[in-house]
């Protein structure tokens, strides 16, 4: 299980996270929603140790991420797949080489690597693209290759950073199906998005990040029925200020 425990993080004078606490239960897709620039991607980067928190901690399977040494961190990253917002495919490599890279690092033999590459491309419904370069693919295809690269490692967790941003509705729906299928394969997903249609579609639980902390966590039904004016405004996509918020907060 992934646990975020009172995470705070600042960049210069700007405090992005102000005590974020959240549990990501195993076997489910948890979705973090929130406005652009609220710290959703920062939260994901804290989970894989790409950046360190100023205070608080991320615990993955009980281990405090920022206290891990280089070797232990590499081992932890072997359990976590990361799907980047713009796919972050290595543009000097073919699709197959992109997927192979993580497998090579883990020392799999050539037969297993070839099998995993084919298998993961089949899961994202892009067979036969092994020899294409990222520049030859559409945005949606690149994101699916990003997912293939993550699932090829058979991770326990996958972190999705804005998986549907910039995609057409049909491709977005395909991405949603992939995230659901991946969860059904037993992989725990943590999705950050501001696409509410996608959040309601793939999420088992939804947490809203607002002004540096978690405003509300609940099931899809609970979030859809929320009375919190800030959450309501966000999920309905209404401009302007929310109605005055009650003093209490959901958990």
């Amino acid at each position: 299980m992934i646990v975020l425990d009172r995470l705070t993080k600042s960049f210069g004078a700007k405090q992005v996270l102000r005590g974020v606490s959240l549990e990501v239960p195993d076997g489910q897709n948890t979705v973090i929603i929130g406005a652009s620039g609220v710290g959703k991607s920062v939260t994901l980067k804290l989970i894989v140790g790409l950046i360190e928190p100023d205070a608080g901690a991320v615990l993955v399977d009980g281990a405090v991420v920022h206290e891990l040494d280089r070797r232990a961190l590499a081992e932890l990253r072997g359990r976590i797949g990361y799907v980047f917002q713009f796919a972050a495919l290595f543009d000097s490599m073919t699709v197959a080489e992109n997927i192979r890279l993580g497998l090579v690092k883990r020392g799999y033999d050539e037969g297993v690597i070839r099998e995993r590459v084919e298998e993961s491309l089949a899961v994202v419904e892009l067979p036969g693209l092994e020899d294409k370069y990222p520049a030859e693919l559409s945005g949606g295809m690149r994101k699916r290759v990003g997912i293939a690269r993550a699932i090829a490692l058979k991770p326990r967790y996958i972190l999705y950073d804005e998986p549907t941003t910039g995609l057409d509705p049909v491709t977005s729906a395909v991405m949603d199906q992939l995230m659901i299928r991946t969860r059904d394969l037993g992989v725990t997903g943590l999705v950050v998005t501001h696409d509410m249609r996608s959040a309601f579609s793939v999420g088992d639980r939804i947490a809203m990040l607002y002004e540096g902390s978690i405003r509300q966590v609940g099931t899809v039904t609970e979030i859809q029925a929320t009375e919190d004016p800030v959450v309501r405004q966000f999920i309905e996509g209404r401009p302007g200020s929310p109605a005055p918020a009650p003093a209490w907060r959901f958990e």
């Binding site: 790409l50 590499a74 980047f84």
Partner: peptide, 17 residues
């Protein structure tokens, strides 16, 4: 270019230094 397109981060998430 790799840095600003998050390819360096992607390398790290694949357990490369």
């Amino acid at each position: 270019t790799m840095k600003v397109t998050e390819q360096v981060d992607a390398l790290e998430t694949l357990a490369y230094d």
